[in-house]
Nucleic acid binder design. Structure first.
Length: 290
DNA sequence: TTCCAGGGGTAGA
DNA sequence: TCTACCCATGGA
């Protein structure tokens, strides 16, 4: 049994990160709210498949892994948990701004503001593509069958699997992915997996904070299946909050809040949060619509 | 049965 | 740049 303690930049709440959006409902994440346990099956680069069990602990989290790990594997676990939970995220400039906005003033006290993300960007891009033009229940179904069908299984609990590697998806053919239930999104996911597996596309490199946001957005938009909504969502996951991910929910809420229920377009939604500048997406995401 | 979802690609103006 | 049309699939 390996136990690792990791500090987080305060304020921090594991529950708030876990419940920051729907990702926690998608495998290989599992969230046990009653005991505050975030679990996730992860395939390490060595090939070993492990379960990461994360609990809140003093000023951060404690990560438990049942297996013996090499030093390099342990470091990989640390890096991945740090990335997924945004442990070192400092939102104090945003919190200062929220103090004058009643709909957001509670965020700092509640330690809200971090957004849960997957260990590698490939997984987040695939999942985001699988949220488009489908109800949330459909996204859960597609991700679950993709993970169960192509993911590496956890040895001690074979009903659970890691998210499939790009190389594994790249080996599949389009018909198989359609059969898994991806429908017309199958060729998008396949093309992405093949380009990442071949090295033609470096998604992990997009995590670099050196890339200007507009350039980053343009690069995300070159992925088939990623449009304005998906790009904005992914920018949020990359810590760039300059765009609101406008979906049917956003249009409904902005319409109700500021347009007397009249239908609104993407431009109206973006404009509604324009004053928040570089924090626009975050202000939208955590807005208390009441 | 029709409509639409946590939209996006493509063709044609 | 903007619009119309198409895309698989399951809830509502």
């Amino acid at each position: 049994m390996l136990e690792i303690s990791l500090p987080a930049h305060p304020p921090f709440s594991l529950a708030e990160v876990a419940e920051s959006h729907g990702w926690v409902q998608l495998p290989p994440f599992e969230w046990h709210a009653d005991i505050g346990l975030l679990s996730r099956v992860e395939r390490l680069s060595s090939g070993q498949v492990v379960e990461l069990r994360v609990c809140e602990h003093s000023d951060g989290v404690q990560v438990e892994v049942a297996d013996e790990l090499l030093q390099a594997e342990e470091q990989e676990v640390v890096d991945k948990v740090d990335w997924m939970l945004q442990l070192d995220q400092d939102l104090s400039p945003f919190y200062i701004l929220t103090r004058d906005e009643p709909r957001l003033a509670h965020l700092e006290q509640a330690a809200k503001g971090r957004i849960l993300r997957s260990s590698i960007l490939f997984e987040d891009v695939v999942k985001t593509i699988l949220t488009t033009n489908v109800q949330w229940s459909g996204t859960i179904r597609m991700v679950a069958s993709l993970v169960d069908g192509l993911g590496s299984r956890l040895p001690d609990e074979p009903s659970r699997s890691a998210f499939p590697r790009p190389e594994r998806i790249a080996e599949a053919d389009e018909a198989a992915l359609r059969e898994v239930g991806l429908g017309y999104r199958a060729p998008y996911v396949l093309e992405l997996a093949r380009s990442v597996a071949s090295g033609a596309r470096d998604l992990e490199g997009l995590k670099s904070t050196d890339i200007p946001t507009d350039e980053l957005r343009q690069r995300l938009l070159t992925i088939k299946g990623v449009g304005d909504y998906a790009a904005a969502s992914l920018l949020m996951l990359l810590g760039r909050y300059d765009f609101v991910p406008v979906d049917s929910w956003a249009r409904t809420m902005v319409s109700r809040e500021w347009y007397h229920g009249e239908p609104v377009g993407d431009a109206e939604v973006q404009a509604a949060f324009e004053d928040w500048g570089a924090w626009k997406g975050l202000a939208y995401w955590f807005w208390d619509w009441r």
